[in-house]
Computed example of a mutant assay.
Amino acid sequence: MIKTGEPRSLGIPASEARLTFDTELQELGGGPRRRLLMVDDEPAFELSFYCGTCPLLFRRLETSREKLSLESMQERLTGTLDDPDDGGVIDAFGTLLPKGEYLPLLLEVEPRLVIPGREGDYFSGEQVTTWGIDQFWGLPEYPHTPYYRTFETAVDADTHLYEFVVPMVPPTWNERERVEEYAALMEQGTVPTAVAISTLDVCQPAIDRGDDYFAHWGLTHFLIDGHHKLEAAATAGRPVRLLSLLTLGESLAGTEETSRLPALRTQSRTGRQVGR
């Protein structure tokens, strides 16, 4: 944690915002309605169900094809941001977001790229330990995207916080030259800044099917700006700063949980041990 701001109102009317949250319309006889992150009125990601007992989820959908960035902020974000309000960055990116209350968090992260189903994958690791595998498919949840893991820590004896950075499009879509440029800057000591809209989802299974029953807090950062920076940092083993605009109204967490987040994010990084 570098710095946290006070909760503030940001955004424009949802009908004009490029990034919004929505709930899928219920079809007659259909299953539970999906909670969605929308980009340009197209469903980009399916998110954790509202019930709070289903597993944590961010699942990329077929219509997630767009990166979001602001050309006017590129030069400012190539350097190191020391304050969430530095250079009007928050207000500038607020023009992409739906009107609501947001908590600004400025973090320094060392991202590790994870491929679903491989070593370090949360969905086939820690999540299965708590929920077990999906009872219908007989498989773990699958996010349909590579993603970055950055931080995790204990909330208390029965609760653990997991942090993820999720690109809007896979790193394989990034321009190689730009990734290499950022990697070179990082080798020279520059710590560039990425920007994300974030959710905090609190999930705990209703039935104990796994080997270790406890609650998961998922802090998920959906990249608005910084796809090349995150890949460069993961490749070079270097830190990058992340300006997180945490939506308070669209997270599956209450005021008590979100108010604890800044302090939790300053704790030491600790993994969860099964049965603890």
Rank of each mutant, 00 (worst) to 15 (best):
P84G: 01
A92H: 06
K67D: 09
E101D: 05
E101R: 10
L97Q: 06
L81V: 04
E101T: 04
T78C: 07
L103Y: 07
P116Y: 08
L106Q: 02
P98L: 03
E110V: 05
E71V: 06
T95Q: 14
E71A: 05
E75Y: 07
F93L: 10
T78N: 10
M73A: 15
R112L: 01
T95L: 08
L113S: 13
T78V: 06
T95G: 12
V114P: 02
E101V: 05
S69E: 10
L81N: 03
E110M: 12
P111M: 14
I115A: 12
L105G: 00
L70T: 09
E108Q: 15
F93A: 06
P111A: 13
A92C: 02
L103E: 03
L81G: 00
I90R: 06
V89C: 03
E71Y: 10
K99M: 11
D85C: 00
G117F: 02
P111G: 12
F93M: 09
P104D: 05
G100D: 03
G88L: 08
E101C: 03
G117N: 04
L107Q: 10
P98T: 03
Q74A: 14
T80I: 06
L105A: 00
P111I: 13
E110D: 07
D91T: 04
Y102D: 00
T78P: 01
I90C: 03
S72H: 12
P104V: 02
G88E: 10
P98G: 02
T95C: 07
L103P: 02
S72N: 10
L106M: 03
D85N: 08
P111W: 13
R112M: 00
D86C: 05
R112H: 08
L96M: 13
E108L: 07
F93Y: 15
R65D: 11
K99I: 06
K99W: 11
S72L: 05
S72E: 12
G79R: 14
L70D: 11
Y102G: 00
L68D: 01
L96C: 11
P98S: 09
Y102Q: 00
R76Y: 02
R65S: 14
D82E: 15
P111N: 13
P116Q: 09
D91H: 01
D85T: 06
T78H: 09
E101H: 02
